[in-house]
């Protein structure tokens, strides 16, 4: 049978089934998706899909990994569509189209030290980049992963973080904005972790995802340390209705976040990051 994808316009989703579901935090889940028919969507780390909840709407969601051939999407319930995805169970179906966007582009920096800085759910699109570096350790220099969250119970991927921390070939640090008394780790902003890991600023590529104010602070600190602004990559987020550069919603200055991004060298967007309401 010929699926819609074979003949369809760019706004037409294919149907995917939830293969498994994992709870991350009180409002965040990771779902594994398999196509009902046709090939799996192949995404590079940093790319995203448009996920459609039947009759409710569609949202852009980054790929947070691959697991046994399934595409993983980590979703925080903040609106009607993400709430429907959050409430899904195994076997439920969603529409999906993709892949969209450009990806982190780690392959452009063979041998460089890799510094990954994540804030909150910003860790989701970075997870496949971390796994990629760990799986191809010989292709990269030092790996540092700095993770910030508002509180311990808002940390996603806790099992993964524990596994990464057990690696001797990676420096993985976690910090919490507001910590309860039983928290034994670092407390403070994620920028405060930067001096606590070792990397060579002159040969480092930094991948950063989190709130805009956090990404700007991280980029500023990294540039002060001597990391070139074109070696710092941030993942931008804007409202999106189409993901193909037609709807106009995701514009960030001259950039369409959906097709020119969502990953941008900081150098390219630095001036925009200093202006409100762009």
């Amino acid at each position: 049978m010929v699926g819609p994808a074979d003949m369809s316009g760019p706004m037409t989703p294919r149907i995917f089934r939830v293969a498994s579901k994992r709870r991350e935090t009180a409002d965040t889940v990771t779902l594994a998706f398999d196509p009902l028919e046709g090939p799996q969507i192949e995404l590079r780390p940093g790319q995203f899909d448009m996920l459609y909840a039947f009759g409710i709407g569609e949202v852009p969601i980054s790929m947070s990994g691959m697991s046994e051939g399934s595409v993983l999407h980590t979703v925080r319930a903040v609106g009607a569509v993400t709430r429907a995805i959050y409430d899904a169970g195994e076997g439920d179906v969603f529409g999906m189209r993709g892949p969209y966007g450009n990806g982190w582009g780690l392959e452009d920096h063979p041998g460089a030290d890799v510094l990954i800085v994540a804030g909150g759910i910003g860790l989701a699109p970075l997870r496949p980049a971390i796994e990629h570096v760990l799986a191809h350790r010989e292709l990269h220099g030092k790996l540092s992963v700095l993770i910030g969250a508002r509180s311990p119970e808002l940390l996603i991927f806790q099992d993964d973080i524990a596994r990464w921390q057990a690696r001797l070939d990676a420096q993985v640090r976690v910090t919490i904005d507001v910590a309860p008394s039983e928290w034994r780790g670092a407390v403070g902003l994620v920028t405060e972790l930067i001096p606590r890991v070792s990397f060579d600023p002159g040969r480092t590529v930094a991948l950063v995802c989190g709130p805009e104010i956090m990404m700007r602070a991280v980029a500023t600190d990294l540039m002060d340390l001597g990391v070139a602004s074109d070696q710092i990559r941030i993942s931008m987020e804007r409202n999106m209705k189409c993901a193909i550069g037609h709807c106009g919603h995701c514009q960030f200055g001259p950039e369409f976040v959906c097709k020119d991004g969502p990953i941008f060298p900081y150098e390219r967007v630095e001036s925009l990051m200093r202006v409100r309401e762009v």
Partner: peptide, 10 residues
């Protein structure tokens, strides 16, 4: 001007 939105209905 080309901007558009989508509406999903049932």
């Amino acid at each position: 001007c080309f901007c558009s939105t989508v509406e999903d209905t049932t």
